[in-house]
Design a protein around this nucleic acid. Structure first.
Lengths: 193, 193
DNA sequence: CGGATCGTTGATCAACTTCAACGGTCGTGG
DNA sequence: CCACGACCGTTGAAGTTGATCAACGATCCG
């Protein structure tokens, strides 16, 4: 199993010594997902952090009316997990599944804690990682509060042009918080100009 | 200057040795704010992390139409900063000001980096802190996408009962993403039942 | 072929905003 | 001490934005 992409990603933020790399490799699990396969299902306990090698996963929430609300897409070199469930140990209210056939590296919660204790570099790496994710999430809250659906869609296109290409529209609609029907109308409006 | 509340807050997550405490104390700046005073103004560079001792600050964004959108309230033992600007060094598009007379402890960006390098405990502390903030922000995105304004208001009351007491309604409206007029109508509806 | 998935369209309806106006409270300066 | 302005909440009418529902066509794949 080749965890080189993961190591490379970490070393963009902080160098790892040999011991850290070996410990990391020892705790990394490889998993292949087919399209539509769950990595985490509502009611499960989220016990792994997941690093996506290739393919595309989504983290989403099924609300009272049964509709899916996408919180996050994760493609190559992205992380995904229900961090809330991971920390508290409570059952997850979120789902993770594969929108495309995907390859994933997983680290169990307990193993990650051991890595934190043994190698301070991992605290640093995940601190920076989470800070970046937090900023992105903050901007998204901002947009949800202050922008129209059309503005949100345009900003999605700008920010994730690669995702806009490869994802079905219905997933994008869910991410920006509108119905697929309305997104279709937004796109028509944009065409007409 | 007494930074004990800050140390106590950190030690809920990870113990600090004497050296770490002293270095922290040496880098901590005390600042008093009067009501309405800016701690960060749009266009400034955010160069400090701010720990609120008492009072209440808000982090907000002024959009194209000139309306204020609140991203975060920070009261006692809370942190506030524009982390995006802090990291990238770019000018901030956000503002921080005091809703009440407040006391704040500040740590400059450069000093914080030194603390990270010298004492791994700070990486750990801010990792956990940010993970928690991230989870909260994620839940908020979820709510914005999947709930009505009334549900968002009720959930705000549940989650921050102390804030609901002490904040003017117009700030709460801004936080949950509705106009103050509409929040007033929501409240009337809730009364009538 | 037949079903699953995806996008589109139009009609109707609900949620929320905008605007304008009004009343109450509180602090400050004259 | 009063008067004034700043700030805050409320109300109602009219307008927008976006959801819902039902229907249809296209594509893809087993």
């Amino acid at each position: 199993m080749n965890i080189q992409p993961l190591i490379a990603h970490i070393e963009k933020i902080i160098p790892l010594d040999e011991a850290a790399k070996q410990d990391l490799a020892a705790k990394t699990i490889f998993k292949k997902l087919r399209r539509r396969q769950y990595l985490l299902q509502e009611g499960d306990h989220c016990n792994h952090y997941n690093f996506v090698l290739n393919g595309c996963l989504r983290l989403y929430f099924v609300d009272g009316k049964g509709s899916e609300n996408v919180l996050q897409f994760a493609t190559g070199n992205g992380w995904v997990a229900d961090i809330g469930s991971l920390h508290t140990g409570q059952a997850s209210r979120l789902c993770i599944d594969a929108l495309e056939p995907s390859d994933v590296l997983r680290i169990a919660k307990q193993d990650l804690i051991e890595l934190y204790v043994k190698h301070a570099a991992f605290d640093r790496y995940f601190r920076v990682l989470t800070e970046n994710a937090f900023v992105a999430m903050q901007q998204r809250v901002l947009q949800n509060i202050s922008s129209t659906a059309e503005e949100r869609y345009l900003s999605f296109l700008e920010k994730y042009p690669h995702l806009a290409q490869r994802l079905p529209q219905v997933q994008i609609a869910s991410f920006i918080g509108v119905t697929p029907e309305f997104l279709s109308k937004i796109r028509r409006n944009l065409m007409e100009q």
